[in-house]
Simulated scan of single mutants.
Amino acid sequence: MSSSIAFQLNGSAAQVDDAGDEPLLFVLRNRLDLKATHFGCGLEQCGACVVSVDGQARYSCTLPMSALAGAEVTTPEALRDDPVGVALLEAFEAEQAGQCGYCISGILMRIHALFKTERRPGRAAILAALDKHLCRCGAHGSILRAVERAAARLGGEA
């Protein structure tokens, strides 16, 4: 018997058949051809796979599709269509935040979720949000500057 999971994906209705406990990450990359979310460790230890689920940053590498019926899932592909996402993307480009880029999509999604609840987070809140993300390139300084730049830009918006 076939089962189907319906959810919202980047603002549009989506449906996946026979996914069960298949991790969201694999569905995004292998079935839906959304490649911006990356596989890092598969153990919720690096943050490369973070997406937004119902406005909360979640690890997609271990999140089973069976838990997503009716959920709103946002991936890095949707950032270019969102004012907060655009501010983040522009700030990351201006600060040249990231070298290889592998961790950046998860970092962007984590900060996007933070900005949705707090438009002008202080440095402590930003550092706490980034604490579980690994960047092997050592781009931490430019990433922090980019987040602070986006926060300053968004602080004046309603």
Rank of each mutant, 00 (worst) to 15 (best):
C49T: 12
I104P: 01
P83T: 07
I143T: 10
L89N: 00
I107P: 01
A113Q: 04
L63W: 04
M109S: 05
A113K: 02
M109G: 05
P83M: 04
G47A: 07
D131R: 15
T62A: 15
C137I: 11
G70K: 07
P64Y: 06
L144N: 07
R123G: 09
T117H: 09
S142T: 15
A124E: 15
E118L: 12
E93A: 15
L127E: 14
G141T: 15
C46R: 02
L108C: 09
P83Q: 03
C100E: 11
V53M: 01
D81P: 03
L134T: 12
L89C: 01
R80I: 15
L89Q: 10
V147G: 02
V53I: 09
A124G: 13
Q96F: 13
R119P: 09
L79S: 00
G122K: 08
L144P: 02
T74N: 08
I104E: 02
H133L: 12
E118C: 04
A91H: 00
G141H: 12
D81V: 01
F92T: 04
A67G: 05
H140F: 13
A125R: 12
S52P: 06
L63F: 02
L144A: 07
Y59V: 03
S52R: 06
D82H: 07
K116F: 05
C49G: 08
S66W: 07
Y102K: 10
A94L: 12
